[in-house]
């Protein structure tokens, strides 16, 4: 299983490439410009939900970007929560 980290906006090729490889049982951490993929009631957030992966967003990054209406399927975590995920997932792929 792969822990994906996305640090690019939902219109980027990074996002596109990430979607190509993500699968059920994976997790994705949205950070930096990736937090815009967490906005509730968007096509992008629906696409992410459909992957079956566990969805997370770095709370500070979302706050800095003004992303407050976070999709219910996305959990807010701090950096410590991010570290916890890396303990569980043996592989990380950085998309940016």
């Amino acid at each position: 299983m792969i822990l994906h980290t996305l640090n690019a906006s939902p219109s980027s090729s990074a996002f596109e490439d990430c979607l190509k490889t993500i699968a059920e049982g994976d997790a994705i951490v949205l950070m930096g410009d990736g937090v815009y993929a967490a906005i509730a009631h968007t096509e992008v957030s629906r696409v992410l939900e459909d992957t079956g992966a566990a969805l997370y967003v770095i709370a500070d990054d979302a706050m800095a970007a003004g992303v407050l209406n976070i999709s219910a399927a996305v959990s807010s975590i701090d950096i410590s929560g991010f570290v916890v995920l890396t303990e569980t997932f043996p592989l990380q792929q950085a998309w940016y």
Binding site: M1, I2, K20, T21, I22, P90, L91, Q92, Q93, W95
Partner: peptide, 17 residues
């Protein structure tokens, strides 16, 4: 193709993106 890429990725100790 996409699913094959994923199959490939999970075969390694580390991914360097």
């Amino acid at each position: 193709d996409g699913p094959e890429i994923r199959q490939l990725m999970i075969c390694y100790d580390h991914l360097l993106g």
